[in-house]
Design a binder for these strands. Sequence first.
DNA 1: TCTCCAGATGCCGAAGGGTCATGTGCAAAC
DNA 2: GTTTGCACATGACCCTTCGGCATCTGGAGA
Lengths: 298, 298
Amino acid sequence: MTLRHLEIFKAVCEESNMTRAAERLHMTQPAVTRAIHELEKHYGVILFDRIYHRLTLTEEGKILYARAIHITEHFSLAEKELRNPDAVKTIRIGASITLGNYFMPAFISAFQQKHENTRLYVKVARGHTLVDLLRANSLDLAFIETYISDPDMVSRVFSTNEMVLVLRKDHPLTRREHIMLADVVSWPLLLRQPGSVGRDHVDAVLKANGYECDPLWESASSQALLRAVKAGHGIAILPDQLVHDTEDKCDLAIRKIEDVSMVRKNTIVYHKNKYLSPLLKELIADCQKETGDGSLFQ
Amino acid sequence: MTLRHLEIFKAVCEESNMTRAAERLHMTQPAVTRAIHELEKHYGVILFDRIYHRLTLTEEGKILYARAIHITEHFSLAEKELRNPDAVKTIRIGASITLGNYFMPAFISAFQQKHENTRLYVKVARGHTLVDLLRANSLDLAFIETYISDPDMVSRVFSTNEMVLVLRKDHPLTRREHIMLADVVSWPLLLRQPGSVGRDHVDAVLKANGYECDPLWESASSQALLRAVKAGHGIAILPDQLVHDTEDKCDLAIRKIEDVSMVRKNTIVYHKNKYLSPLLKELIADCQKETGDGSLFQ
DNA sequence: TCTCCAGATGCCGAAGGGTCATGTGCAAAC
DNA sequence: GTTTGCACATGACCCTTCGGCATCTGGAGA
């Protein structure tokens, strides 16, 4: 038995007349008659008494009618819900530690206000962890402060950030007008731990310019590095966003390294096969509207 | 979209794997794949993320899954209910006044005990009224104390009754050993009103034997006739059942009219096109088990 | 008796839903 | 690195089914 049978049956019940039901359904009377007969045969039951061409529901018919109403209603409810972009849904977002701290909170709450029914799950983790989660479809998309060059991932740039040199105000380098990479490597470096996207970037830049990376500190926490700088243990290379948002930075100087570009792309990353629902597309669009031009890299 | 699509979708959700779902449904994988594609196309939505051949429901898919569960469940509920003879149902029974008084109450309560979910509606009315109601399908079947010779009706005999002469014990006729029709017509007759099945029967017998029917009383109530007999206003011809069940009959004599047969058939009557559900058939069978042989007349 | 109405029946054509064979993309193993 | 295996996608084909058309039947009303 198909939904169609129930729809036809319902119409016949409501019209008490097969011919009128046929008109209402824009089909011919024989087709309706047959559908009813098929129902009756399938259930081994007579649904209508046909007495002097007057149709009246039998008790069995009444039972089926109640079910038919219910089932057809739920079918159209499914239709409505699936087409309604504001149905209750969950979006699972990943954020790298830097963006998770300095960008996501405001962005997420703005989006939440527009979509009250949506549940916005956020996971803050290292960039490489996020990519693994995207690969396992445990996240829908991730915000990472660098471009991800993985053939399975799509990276959409939405703004940029820059790695800057952070030093104590009384550090000798602050007296230089121009700071070059060569100046930096001669001092003790305080860096993120290997495998983090920030550290990887520093490693790559150093290597490209012929330097070995040999940091004095390696830390999972950027905050810890900032405190170490304040304490005079060395100099650090950190994202500008992070340093700007730090509360107590009066002891710190922030400088560019002028002979290398340490500009990075803040990107939204998702799996190339990921289905982007209208809601996800809107979230991506919102993000790009704020700053970037929406250009697409892979 | 058909129910089949939802069944397939449900299986795929539960297996997270189209190939296994296909096996479970005893069909081939391409058919399953196509069904899912058709659903997705119809709703304009992607139901599964296909990332590295791992299927995971999208949010839209989860919404549809909930509906699919619900709908398929109600479909099988309909199936169960329609095949279950003890689902809640109503049976609408008609009874002629005589049978309604002296037969139905015990019979109905016996049947009710076997089927607690069944609602037994009873209408007591004149036989001809009942036949009209059967014709309009306002009743399912009727119990009438005479055979109904209507080409649209089926009459099943389940027992017999006899019309008897009722007179006061001191009436001159009681002294006769044999009472003939000729004796009866010479006395004032107290009869049911024209159109009742009892009266019709008396009229027919009299006419067949060449007598005119010219009663002194005509009454809608048999009880009233009995009291009139007791009061000495005349003699009556009434069903034996009715007289036997009368509480105070010590003043009355009951005699057969010996030269005419006034035996009548108690029948269950229903429209020839009426659908007899298992429940109705059982009721008819119960009735015939008690007394009759179940032979069928039309 | 004729006509009209409503459901039943039979036949036919188009379409839908299934199978089979094959392709493609990823993963795991030798 | 090549191979093997697995899982979903795709295309050709086939049969069942569903709807349309024409016609029949049975009851009601003029």
